[in-house]
Simulated scan of single mutants.
Amino acid sequence: MDGWDVLAEAGDRARRGEAFALATVVWREGPSSGKEGCRAIVTEDGELHGWIGGACAEPVVLREARQALAEGTPRLLLLGTPDRFGSVPDGMTVVPISCQSEGALEIYVEPVVPAPHLVVAGRSPLAHTLVALATALGWRAELSEDLASVTERSYVVVATQGHNDEETLERALTRNPAYVGLVGSRKRGEAVLGYLADRGVPADRLARVQVPAGVDLGAVEHREIAVAVLAELVRLRAAGRPVRVVERVAEEAVDPVCGMTVARRDPVECDGVAYYFCCAGCRDAFRRDPAAYAKKESRC
């Protein structure tokens, strides 16, 4: 994909509710394979779609993009050899790379976090009001009985109000959403949770259910209960929930010759330890004198 195709793909992913980071080359000093306007999408799982530069830049951008997604803050990267940079503006992250082309890049990395996804189970006026209020806030909100669209990022509110509460709540818990709330009295909630415990639903899952859902406004009518539920969800979002933690096998290593962060490809083994390199030059330097670069415990 080129720069404009990446933007179209980014729009599609945003509409599907996916989280990703958009990396854009905003300045270059040649020679460099990355050009101004080159763009790439970095997914939460560390996949890169597009082009922002060669083997020197790509691992750095992948790492910084995932960090930007985790923190929810953009960053401006300056990539190049340290000796060529003078005064660096505040807020810019300098990443030294020892690229043989001796080029330099500035790359803007912007996290794109999707709008919150709210799924409400129920046909009551409260359920319809809650969806309408969340939609007015720009959230992706929907009514659903089967909860098929629920993901680990979704907020789920069970507002069935006596119509298959137990079955609906159990279905919601199996999808492991970020939040599960049950609209009803505390006494009703205890009965529903007790029934599910008897059915063998794990206690740790049941403990995640917020019942009654929403901030306590006292005795109010259904529209005000919808406001109370949404207020609780807004408060959780402001506190940083949901936060998705992706467990990943490390796919990066440090080139022992130049110190660059590189992808784990084409290793050279020394005394049972795998080493990875940014280019053939560093690999050849290691092979000529492995003792100068290998870990102290290695005896190559």
Rank of each mutant, 00 (worst) to 15 (best):
G17Q: 03
Y195D: 02
Y179D: 01
P177E: 01
E110I: 12
V156T: 10
A191W: 03
T24A: 14
R288C: 04
A203E: 15
G80R: 03
E152H: 10
M260Q: 06
C38K: 06
C56H: 10
K296G: 15
T73H: 11
M92S: 01
P202W: 08
P202K: 01
A127I: 12
Q67G: 13
V158C: 13
A219V: 13
T129N: 13
V94S: 04
A197H: 00
E110S: 04
L105N: 06
D289E: 09
R75I: 12
V183L: 11
G200C: 09
V180F: 01
S185K: 05
A21Q: 00
V6F: 03
A213S: 04
V211L: 02
I225V: 07
L206C: 08
R188G: 14
V209E: 04
G218T: 10
P59Y: 06
Y275Q: 01
R208N: 04
P59T: 05
A219C: 02
R205P: 00
E297G: 07
P256S: 13
P202Q: 04
G272P: 12
T261Q: 02
V61H: 08
M92K: 09
H117Y: 14
R199M: 07
S33F: 15
E110G: 07
A127N: 08
E269L: 13
D255F: 11
D165H: 00
G46Y: 11
L233A: 07
R140E: 14
L77D: 06
V201A: 04
T73Q: 15
D284N: 04
G162W: 13
V262N: 05
V61C: 12
V157K: 00
A213Y: 10
Q210I: 08
P31N: 11
K35T: 07
G91K: 07
L196Y: 01
A197I: 00
Y155L: 06
L105S: 07
H117G: 09
I52G: 12
L77S: 14
Y155N: 01
A55W: 09
L69V: 05
A292Y: 10
A207Y: 08
S98Y: 06
L126W: 10
M1P: 14
A207R: 13
R241F: 15
L143W: 06
Y179R: 00
R153T: 05
V6I: 05
V245N: 03
S33K: 09
S298P: 00
P267M: 03
E29K: 15
R84G: 09
R299T: 07
G162E: 05
V257T: 09
T174M: 06
R63P: 00
S144A: 12
R16Q: 06
H117E: 14
A172F: 03
E297A: 14
S154D: 01
V227S: 00
S154K: 04
R188M: 09
A57N: 05
